[in-house]
């Protein structure tokens, strides 16, 4: 028995001593939306260079920022992915903890699809229709400037031009970044078309716009977008909200609805015509460049034309690239490791 205890103690001692040593692989955390893209780049990077393949954890944008900003040193991540820009408060937290040199990289866009089964008719909705169909409280249909509990049960009641089918929308739960972006881009876009809501105070405005209805018409289908796609197949009358990469991978099963007359297609999102799209970023800890091997090379791989270009392999995976000029400019700034001065 004493031998075993000795062994246990030595294993523990070994790990503690190893932990203090340098890390020879890049550690990446952050957004689950960027995860499928970052992992492709990491894999290519690992296979085509002598560096180890970076490890990538899917922690969510906020969780990633928190880990990223805990400080510098090998026990903190080198890069964090994000499906939104770093907040001013997060930037300050970074500064306070000694993470002073942060390089921001805008990598492209992700569209949020509003889609149904290919067996059903394609929907043609406006942001206002989406808001009226999905918000908890909507402007009183009689025209007075008050909010009432959402009375609509059919799409045709929301807008007579829409088909007479029951409103049933499957979407992500509040913990999801996709839900945040959907609320901000689609719901807010729709509800700000009503003057009296638009002129509300910020807090009331957000409460009115972002709260989804809870009477079973909006179904929280969990974080797994595959599940939503499967459910849409089973129920052609339902619509679903999920990331563009899932639409692209299942284009033979589901179709995008027209939102404000534009379908979620590659070009439309890239040009900014499609209203529900969001930017994707990653942030690099410049102080780790040189300490952890391969960071500069990983960033170079990510910002190479064959990776994030129009014909690059990230586009194949469903990421919408930046415009060509923006890419050239961004790649130059990134490879020179221009740090972020501040976020307003």
């Amino acid at each position: 028995m004493s031998k075993r205890i000795l062994l246990t103690a030595s294993v523990l001692a070994l790990t503690v001593s190893q932990a203090a040593q340098a890390r020879d692989y890049i550690s990446i955390v952050g957004s689950s939306t960027v995860f499928p893209f970052a992992t492709v780049v990491a894999e290519k990077f690992g296979k085509s260079t002598d560096f180890s393949t970076p490890t990538i954890e899917s922690t969510g944008s906020g969780g990633g920022m928190k880990l990223f900003c805990t400080g510098i040193g090998v026990d903190t991540p080198d890069i964090t992915n994000s499906s939104r820009r770093m907040k001013a408060s997060e930037f300050e937290m970074c500064q306070e903890n000694g993470v002073t040199d942060v390089v921001e990289v805008l990598i492209g866009f992700d569209g949020i699809a509003f889609a149904n089964s290919v067996e059903a008719q394609q929907m043609d909705v406006s942001l206002t229709d989406i808001y009226l169909a999905l918000a908890k409280d909507v402007p009183n249909p009689d025209g007075s400037e008050t909010l009432v509990a959402n009375p609509y049960s059919m799409w045709s009641e929301v807008n007579p031009e829409l088909p007479a089918i029951e409103i049933e929308v499957l979407g992500p739960p509040p913990t999801s970044g996709t839900r945040d972006a959907f609320a901000e881009l689609a719901m807010e876009g729709g509800c700000s078309t009503f003057g009296f809501i638009d002129s509300m105070e910020k807090k009331d405005f957000q409460a009115a716009c972002h709260t989804m209805r809870e009477d079973g018409r909006y179904v929280e289908a969990g974080e797994n977008d595959n599940l939503i796609v499967q459910k849409l197949q089973a129920n052609p009358d339902a619509l679903g909200i999920f990331g563009y990469s899932f639409l692209e991978q299942n284009s033979d099963l589901v179709q995008s609805s027209m939102v404000d007359g534009v379908a979620a297609e590659f070009d439309a999102i890239a040009d900014g015509d499609y209203p529900i799209s969001r930017p994707l970023y990653f942030y690099v800890k410049k102080q780790h460049v040189g300490t952890v091997p391969g960071i500069a090379e990983y960033v170079a791989e990510f910002t190479a034309e064959r990776t994030w270009g129009d014909d690059g392999y990230l586009a194949d995976k469903g990421m919408i690239p930046l415009g060509e000029e923006a890419r050239v400019e961004a790649a130059a700034a990134v490879n020179a490791m221009t740090t972020l001065a501040g976020i307003n």
Binding site: T53, T55, N226, S245, N250
Partner: peptide, 30 residues
């Protein structure tokens, strides 16, 4: 819960486990 391509060589290398691999794959778009 991480994307691990390289096979871990020691107990301190980054690694994942079978049930977590199931969890990660269930969430992949392809």
């Amino acid at each position: 819960v991480a994307f691990i391509v390289d096979i871990p060589n020691s107990v301190t290398d980054p690694a994942t486990v079978l049930p977590v691999q199931v969890f990660l794959w269930a969430d992949a778009p392809e």
